[in-house]
Design a protein around this nucleic acid. Structure first.
Lengths: 205, 205
DNA sequence: CCCTAGCGTTCTATGAACAGAACGTTCCAT
DNA sequence: ATGGAACGTTCTGTTCATAGAACGCTAGGG
């Protein structure tokens, strides 16, 4: 569907139902592609689910903040909402942008490839308590920066104790632990996966 | 869900623009490029010129309709406003001691509010050379994690030397430096702006 | 000196975007 | 059947983006 027509002078000054509708369609496509419910996307974006419901049906005129919250949760560039061309979102990426643990939530906010590695950036919130993580694929390196709260992270036998503003880097391919020491902690997690020839890169600048 | 950005009184706009500010800068650039006054652009877009004035200064959170009206009047694609975080960082700010300068690109990939602060996450790429950054608004804290390459960052008089996987945290409200030591470096930058309850609005009703 | 004309900013009222709760539905488990 | 869990929709009150007017500023002309 054409996203919209450049409105000739004399048309309605307010509200372009075409535009809102096409953006809404696009959001719904992206959401369902990932198998997310409205409730899940609402949680990931921190938007009201009523808001999303009406947005998807073109009954709202979203603000820039709202659009940005949605695109980052869905990990697409902002422009992707505005070119309603039914662009499929590239290869893989079935799992969706966020993962749940009892105590841990991770939302993918950035992902790109370097010459020799794939980089993913997560916003991770950690509730109080300890959580073991088995090693991931070989060669993975994790860097965590604490935004708020207090955590102990790192190799199971030698975790680092971090508070606001502190960072730590450790190998992600051996068992490690995330332990929330405050009631609620927010962190930024950078994961770097060595690029094997099979791991085909993704797009996005 | 992000309620509203902090706009500390009397402070210059940050040179790591938040989303609204960067879009505002972009609009102003495009408008002045064309020799248009606010009044003229208001007429062309059928928006209030007060609206445009505040938009350009990052004091509003425009809706999709508003953005569309502006882009069509200026005949640029909508996406042109939204990638405004790429490119030069801080419009022509510092004639400082930068040797090669300008070689910095920052893309906003995450943004949310904590109870007491606004958090922004950038993917920042740094070319070789040194770049001074003037202090941003009071209380800002920056944390940088190097993904690839090699940089020296921090307070101008005491920068830290970082390579892949290393991180550093420093106050962003005093002069600091970003220096790329490798030909090309990629980093993740976390900026935290204190949210003081009263700085939310410059006017009240 | 006024005056007027253009500029960008600030003010005021209104309507809409928003969060969150309440609702109706469907689909399981018991 | 009955409960409850998940879904998407609708409702309600609050916040904020918007239009347009009023304002202050800087010329330039008579």
């Amino acid at each position: 569907m054409p996203p919209r027509q450049p409105r000739p002078p004399g048309a309605e000054p307010t509200s372009f139902p075409d535009l809102s509708a096409s953006v809404g369609d696009r959001i719904k496509d992206l959401r369902t592609q990932r198998g997310l419910s409205l409730t899940a996307l609402a949680a990931a974006t921190r938007l009201g689910k009523g808001t999303l419901s009406e947005l998807e049906r073109g009954q709202r005129n979203p603000t820039l903040d709202t659009l940005f919250a949605i695109t980052t949760a869905l990990s697409v560039p902002l422009g992707d909402l505005l070119v309603a061309t039914s662009g499929d979102l590239g290869p893989g990426r079935p799992p969706g942008p966020q993962a749940h643990g009892q105590n841990i939530d991770a939302e993918l906010i950035g992902r790109w490839t370097e010459p020799a590695e794939l980089v993913e950036v997560y916003r991770m919130t950690v509730g109080q308590g300890r959580r073991q993580s088995p090693g991931h694929t070989a060669g993975v390196i994790e860097s965590i920066t604490v935004v708020s709260g207090e955590v102990a992270v790192g190799p199971t036998d030698d975790p680092a104790h971090l508070t606001s503003g502190q960072s730590h880097t450790f190998p992600g391919d051996q068992d490690h632990v995330y332990e929330g020491l405050a009631h609620h902690s927010t962190t930024v997690l950078v994961m770097r996966y060595p690029l094997t020839p099979e791991t085909t890169g993704d797009h996005h600048e």
